[in-house]
Every structure is written in structure tokens, then in C-alpha cells.
Nucleic acid binder design. Sequence first.
DNA 1: GGATTATAGGATACACAACTCTAGTATACC
DNA 2: GGTATACTAGAGTTGTGTATCCTATAATCC
Lengths: 163, 163
Amino acid sequence: MISQAGEYALRAIVHLSRCAPDVPASASEIAAATRVPQAYLQKILRLLTRADLLVAQRGVGGGFMLAKLPSAISMLDVLKACNSQPERIERCPLGITGHTELCSLHKLLDEQVAQFERTFATISISDLDKQFGDIRSMCDVVPGCQANGVPLSVDQSERPPTD
Amino acid sequence: MISQAGEYALRAIVHLSRCAPDVPASASEIAAATRVPQAYLQKILRLLTRADLLVAQRGVGGGFMLAKLPSAISMLDVLKACNSQPERIERCPLGITGHTELCSLHKLLDEQVAQFERTFATISISDLDKQFGDIRSMCDVVPGCQANGVPLSVDQSERPPTD
DNA sequence: GGATTATAGGATACACAACTCTAGTATACC
DNA sequence: GGTATACTAGAGTTGTGTATCCTATAATCC
């Protein structure tokens, strides 16, 4: 549905939305909290920074902070920033000249993409910080949750799936 | 949204749904009508045959036919046959032991996949044969439409996009 | 200014999807 | 039976997304 990069970007943004807004979180800290390969995450954080969703601070004590309020960032913004959103179908993919409009097949496929965009455009990052019982995004069970630190326990017996 | 293979498979199935039900269409004929690379299409047709959506007939005059009525084949059946449908999120992608349920982020992403599945499960191939004005799937303008033959005119000045 | 910390950017390796090619097998027709 | 047609199967190639690594650059601390 969304690419790995998009999933990682959303994890990072959600994590940052729970950090103190004026204290930068370093890439390695975010990587540990979100279980994302650090080297790859750095590349994604750069994309998010270039898209003005994050601000980067170099040097000692540096890191990344949200550039806007979590309520002002949509999921679609994040996915767009890392080119991880399906593209609308503008023209007939077969290149048929007569098809000035999409045929029923492609009209329907495009409709799904449009639905996807509408949905993710209306969901902000602050909406994702909701908590269901003990379950909180990117965190271990809530009583021990430490949004800014390395998580307490991970299931090592089973590697998280790569998709 | 869907893979290239999935798109090609849908094109082939829609094309076949308009052919005479008892006359096989060869891979090269389907490739020409749907503008899909023939060698690759053959691989996809094999997948559809193995999934019992098509029946293959070898030898002179052979080819592929639908194994069921178009109304009995859903878009999801076609996408599943060529592994081109997004997977449901069953467990916490981060591998957090405490997360017996999905967190809000992954619950929401999974919800989108579920929505995708529901939509495509309810749309049959016969639904895709609808025609809007002069526009008909895989065909040139309807007056000259020949579902079983090579299309009349293709826009050669602009290659169809590869995505 | 020099050492340390951390991001920026580019080069590289790897995996998988997209696509091609070739040899093999079944069917039909003569 | 021989030949032509068309599917079957698997190996090979190319391109893109995923992931790593190394050097440069900026900021902080002493």
C-alpha cells in the first residue's frame, strides 16, 4: 500500500510529535525508538527536512524537530515528502488517442487513488497519537512508555517483517 | 497503488471478457490489444491460469479463455493471482511484544488495506466492461472498436507511461 | 582554534519487480 | 509421422527501491 520509506517516515514523524517540541531528537535516537535502520532513516529524515516538515539542527545536542504543529501535518504530506504515495491516473495508460477520458477500468483505479489521497490528507499526525488501551504507537506498553528513549523490550525471537 | 503486473492482468482479463467465450485468444493477440509486452504478459497469463481464472489451450488455434463468467471474477481475484494486492497488517511491524493489538498508526494503515480489499472484492470484471460515451476499456473509439483484433490507431508520438 | 557531535550529500551494494530469451511440450492439421 | 502453432518453464537482464558507508560541513564545547 505504502512503501517502506513511507512507513519509516510516518514512524519518525509520529515519534517526534511526542517529543518536547523544542528539544531536537537525533537520528540515532529516532532510529532506536522506531526500529528503523539508522543509515536509511537519516536519508528519509533529510527528505522530510527538505520538504519543510522537519527542521534540522547540526552539532552537539542537534537533531530533528517538527517544523509545524502535529495537527498541521497530514499523513499525505509525509508520504509525498518521500515519494511514497500512489500517483493519480491522468491519461489513458495505453496511450489510446481516442481516450480523452479514462475508460471504466482506469477510472475505477484512479478513483481508488483519489480515495487514498482524500483519506490521508484529512488525517493529521496528532490524530495518530491516540492510544488504544495499553497500545501506543512506537512505544512499549504505556506504563513504561518513554517516547524519548530506547524502548524497554523487543521481541527478539521473531524479526519484524521486512515489508 | 497496484503493481504493473496487476494492471496488465486486469487489462488481459477485461479484454478476454469481451471475446467470444469459447474461442481462445492467443497471448500475442491479447498483448497487442492491451499494449502489454508480450513476453511478460505470457508470464502473467500463466499465473492467471494457475489460479484457475483462465483455461489455456495449446496448439494451433489455441490460447486463453476465461474459466468463469466475467460476473464471477472479482478484481481482487485477478490481483491476488499475480500477488499484486497489498497485504493486511497482522502484527505490530516493529515487533513490540506488548502490542497484542495494532497501534493507531498501523490500525489506520491496515484499515486502508481492508478498504482496498473490500472495494475490489465487490467489483466484478463484468462491471468493468461498462462504456462511457465513446470510451471503452482497451479499445479505440467505439465505432471502430474491434475487441478481438489489433487496435486501429495508437498515439505513437507519446509513449505510454511506464508506471 | 581544536576536538567532538551530528546532519548533508554522494557513492555503492543488494533485493526484488519488470521484462526478455531460449528450450521444452502439448495440440492440430496434413 | 512430420510440421507448424502456441503454451510452459526457467534462466538471464535491467531498473528501481532499500539499505549502507564515507567524506564534507556546520554547530557546540573547551
